[in-house]
């Protein structure tokens, strides 16, 4: 296995993040990836080919059941593609201890899952044991900012507090690839703003590749360096956000115009 190259030694980009050297392998590379679930006619992902450079802050956008979570599950090695190949820093992440330890996947865990029965402090302790770059002081500070009770099981927390716990697990892990799948769903507008500010500050201080799936496009689009849109398991658009902004295109408007189906309207 080829060890991933150290990332940023290039010049800082306008957002302040450090650009990786041109020779560095992409953080994420999907080559003609198809994912089928049993007893489902349509594939969740259908021939997806994407390459995302290191230290990109990429927005993963798509309507419901577009294949966003499936794509993220492949990157986090929760699943294996039916066909095609997934590469993180040039290597297959599935059952790769090196790749897996560098990926933080933040998603809405199921209510019957064990994570729901853990207290935030237990989840943070697990992260401290297993995450090589875990910043406990940062996690504690964030928990105070989000008013997260540390000694209550997460299932007894409000939806917003549960979301805060997930977001803290993703941010304080400082993993070179951090994947947020609707991570802040349930937070109120003020906490979402706090989270976005913290994310941006931490990203500028510790640049890493972030893949962020959200339906709150207008709140997040100013942060994204890249946008990847999926529709019915296929790539609809993958472009540099600066290019889109230069064309005067707002991501939300573009998303709506591209994904609106026949007979649907959006005012």
């Amino acid at each position: 296995m080829q060890p991933p190259a150290p990332s940023p030694h290039g010049d800082p980009d306008p957002t302040g993040a450090m650009a990786p050297p041109e020779s560095a392998p992409p953080a994420i590379e999907l080559i003609d990836v198809t994912l089928r679930y049993p007893r489902q006619k349509k594939p969740a992902l259908d021939g997806v080919s994407v390459s995302i450079p290191q230290n990109a802050l990429c927005g993963l956008l798509g309507r419901n059941a577009a294949g966003k979570t499936s794509l993220m599950a492949l990157l986090a090695a929760f699943r294996r593609p039916t066909a095609g190949s997934v590469r993180l820093w040039g290597q297959d992440p599935f059952e790769s201890p090196q790749a897996m330890s560098e990926v933080a996947f933040v998603y809405q865990w199921r209510e019957e899952g064990f994570a729901s029965y853990c207290k935030p402090r237990e989840l943070f302790a697990m992260a401290a044991h297993m995450r090589p770059r875990w910043d406990n002081a940062f996690a504690t500070r964030l928990a105070e900012r989000f008013d997260v009770p540390m000694r209550k099981s997460t299932s007894r927390l409000s939806k917003g507090q549960q979301a805060a716990v997930r977001c803290i697990l993703g941010l304080a892990a400082r993993a070179p690839l951090t994947i947020f799948d609707e991570a802040y769903l349930g937070m109120d507008a003020v906490y979402r703003k706090v989270f976005v500010d913290e994310l941006l500050q931490d990203y500028l201080k510790y640049p890493r590749t972030i893949l962020f799936s959200t339906h709150y496009i207008s709140e997040m689009e100013r942060l994204f360096t890249e946008a990847l849109m999926l529709d019915e398991g296929r790539v609809l658009l993958h472009d540099d956000c600066d290019v889109l902004r230069a064309k005067g295109m707002a991501l939300q408007d573009l998303f709506i115009s591209l994904t609106l189906k026949e007979g649907e309207s959006y005012e």
């Binding site: 060890p3 090196q98 330890s101 770059r133």
Partner: peptide, 16 residues
Amino acid sequence: ETSRASQPSNRASQSS
């Protein structure tokens, strides 16, 4: 500190 966070895996085996 900055380089520590963004380097995917020159410390990969230690991390795993």
